[in-house]
C-alpha cells in the first residue's frame, strides 16, 4: 500500500474533553489512512466522535494522544505538535462545511482568491487561480456576484472551489450535502471525486446522508470513539 504513505495517516488517536470526573473520552483510539486522490466516507451515530475526529484532522483541536502524519510530515505525535497550525490549515487543509459559509462581503472570485492571498500570493495570481477553479466547477459566470445572490448549489460549489484553491493535500467536508436535494447532493460528491482525481487530494466526507453513502468506495464507520473500516459492498 505504497500510495498511502503520501496521504494522511492517523494511528491511535485519542481525544479527551475536560478532566477528572467530568472527562469525556470522545476518541478512544482511531486509526485511519486516506491516500491522495481518494474520497472516503466517515459515518457513525450521533455522539460517536465524528466531529471531534474531523476537528483533530483539521488541526482545529489538539488530540490528547496518538500520531498524525501528512505524507512525510508529522503533525502530532503524542504531546508534540507542529508550531504553526494556522499556516497548516491555510496551506494543507481545505474545508467544506454543511453550510457554504462564504464571506458575505467578498464577491465569488475573492471568496476563493482570499486563501492564496492569505498565503502571500499576489492578488492577480490568486484571482487567476480562483477563476480557473470556478470554471472547472462551472460557476465562472457568477464570478462577480456576491454570495447572497447565488443559489444554494452555486454557493456550495464556490465553497468547494475555496477548499481546493490552495491545492491542499486534504479536504475535510462536514456533511456537505445536508442542505441539498439528492440530485444536487450526488453532483457535489461527483465534483469532489473529480477534484480528488484531478488534484490528487485526499477527501474525507462526514455524512449521515443515505443517498450518498453508496457512492463511496471506502467508508470508515465510527462508533463509541473507535473506527471500523468498512468496504462498501454494493459498489465494485
Amino acid at each position: 500500500m505504497d500510495r498511502y504513505n503520501q496521504g494522511i495517516r492517523i494511528e491511535g488517536l485519542k481525544k479527551r474533553y475536560g478532566t477528572g470526573d467530568t472527562a469525556v473520552d470522545a476518541l478512544k483510539g482511531v486509526d485511519m489512512q486516506v491516500a491522495p486522490g481518494e474520497v472516503i466516507g466517515l459515518i457513525g451515530p450521533s455522539g460517536s466522535g465524528k466531529s471531534t475526529l474531523l476537528k483533530c484532522l483539521g488541526a482545529i483541536i489538539d488530540p490528547s494522544a496518538g500520531r498524525m502524519t501528512l505524507g512525510e510530515q508529522i503533525i502530532y505525535e503524542d504531546a508534540w505538535k507542529i508550531p504553526d497550525l494556522c499556516a497548516l490549515r491555510r496551506d494543507k487543509i481545505g474545508f467544506v462545511f454543511q453550510a457554504p459559509y462564504l464571506i458575505p462581503f467578498l464577491d465569488v472570485t475573492d471568496n476563493v482568491a482570499l486563501l492564496p492571498m492569505l498565503a502571500g500570493r499576489s492578488n492577480r495570481e490568486s484571482r487567476q487561480r480562483a477563476m480557473a477553479l470556478l470554471e472547472a466547477l462551472d460557476v465562472a459566470h457568477r464570478a462577480k456576484a456576491m454570495p447572497s445572490q447565488l443559489s444554494g448549489g452555486e454557493q456550495q460549489r464556490v465553497a468547494i472551489a475555496r477548499a481546493l484553491v490552495n491545492r491542499p493535500p486534504i479536504i475535510l467536508a462536514d456533511e456537505p450535502t445536508a442542505p441539498l436535494d439528492s440530485e444536487r447532493a450526488l453532483t457535489v460528491i461527483h465534483l469532489l471525486e473529480e477534484m480528488a482525481a484531478q488534484f490528487s487530494t485526499a477527501i474525507i466526507v462526514v455524512t449521515h446522508d443515505e443517498k450518498i453513502i453508496p457512492t463511496f468506495k471506502r467508508i470508515y464507520s465510527i462508533r463509541d470513539g473507535r473506527t471500523h473500516e468498512e468496504q462498501i459492498k454494493t459498489h465494485p
Binding site: F95, Y101, L115, L118, A119
Partner: peptide, 16 residues
Amino acid sequence: IREIAVLKLIGTKNRT
C-alpha cells in the same frame, strides 16, 4: 462571528 470563525478556520491569522 460565523465569518470570523470561518476566516480563522481557513487560516487567517489573528493579526489579520
